[in-house]
Design a protein around this nucleic acid. Structure first.
Length: 160
DNA sequence: GCCAACGTTGGC
DNA sequence: GCCAACGTTGGC
C-alpha cells in the first residue's frame, strides 16, 4: 500500500463536502495533469491519502482518505457542460482518469503548510516545495507517520 | 490582487 | 524540436 496527498480547493470541494457525500465517498474528478493522472493510475484499493486544502486560509492537511476504487475514466471530461471538459477525451478513448476515495478521518485541526515547512522531517514533502503545483503527490511512509504524530501530539505519551 | 513557477500550445 | 506566449496554480 502507498500513501498520497490529494489537493482540493475548499471553495470547490472541501473535506466537509466529502463528509456529507453518501458513504462519505466521492470520485476524484477533474485532474487534468498527466503526472497526477499517472499517479492515480498506480493507486490500489486500500492506499491512503492526506486531504489537503489549497488556496485556503490556512492551507494544510485536514484529514485522511482511503482509495476504494482504482482508476476509471473521468466522465466529466466528455461532459460539454463540465468545467473540466476536454474534447480530446472520449468514452472510447478516455484521456483522464479518477479514483474513488472515502473519508477515513477529519483531523481536529489543520496541519498547516506552515507547520509542515517548519518541521525538519516534513519540509521535504512535495507539497512544501516551492513552485509545487501537482494536485496528487506521493507521500513517504516516514512523512505519513510524522504527520500523524502532529495530528495527535499526545500519542507519544499515551500512558496517561 | 500580485506574481513566481510551471505545464501546454502552436508557430516556425 | 525549439521556445515564446499563454493560461493556471496557489502561496502570500
Amino acid at each position: 500500500m502507498h500513501f498520497w496527498l490529494f489537493k482540493s480547493e475548499p471553495k470547490t470541494f472541501s473535506i466537509d463536502n466529502l463528509k456529507k457525500q453518501p458513504q462519505q465517498t466521492t470520485c476524484w474528478d477533474g485532474v487534468r495533469n498527466y503526472q497526477a493522472r499517472n499517479f492515480m493510475r498506480t493507486m490500489q484499493v486500500g492506499d491512503r491519502g492526506f486531504f489537503y486544502h489549497s488556496n485556503a486560509n490556512p492551507p494544510g492537511i485536514v484529514g485522511i482518505v482511503e482509495v476504494v476504487k482504482t482508476a476509471h475514466p473521468d466522465f466529466t471530461a466528455w461532459d460539454m457542460h463540465s468545467p473540466h471538459y476536454d474534447a480530446d477525451s472520449t468514452p472510447e478513448h478516455p484521456r483522464w482518469f479518477m479514483v474513488d476515495v472515502r473519508l477515513v478521518e477529519k483531523f481536529d485541526r489543520c496541519i498547516t503548510l506552515d507547520a509542515i515547512k517548519q518541521h525538519s522531517q516534513l519540509r521535504s514533502m512535495q507539497v512544501a516545495r516551492k513552485g509545487n503545483r501537482l494536485s496528487i503527490t506521493p507521500v513517504t511512509p516516514a512523512e505519513w507517520q510524522t504527520v500523524l504524530t502532529l495530528d495527535n501530539p499526545r500519542s507519544d505519551r499515551s500512558s496517561r
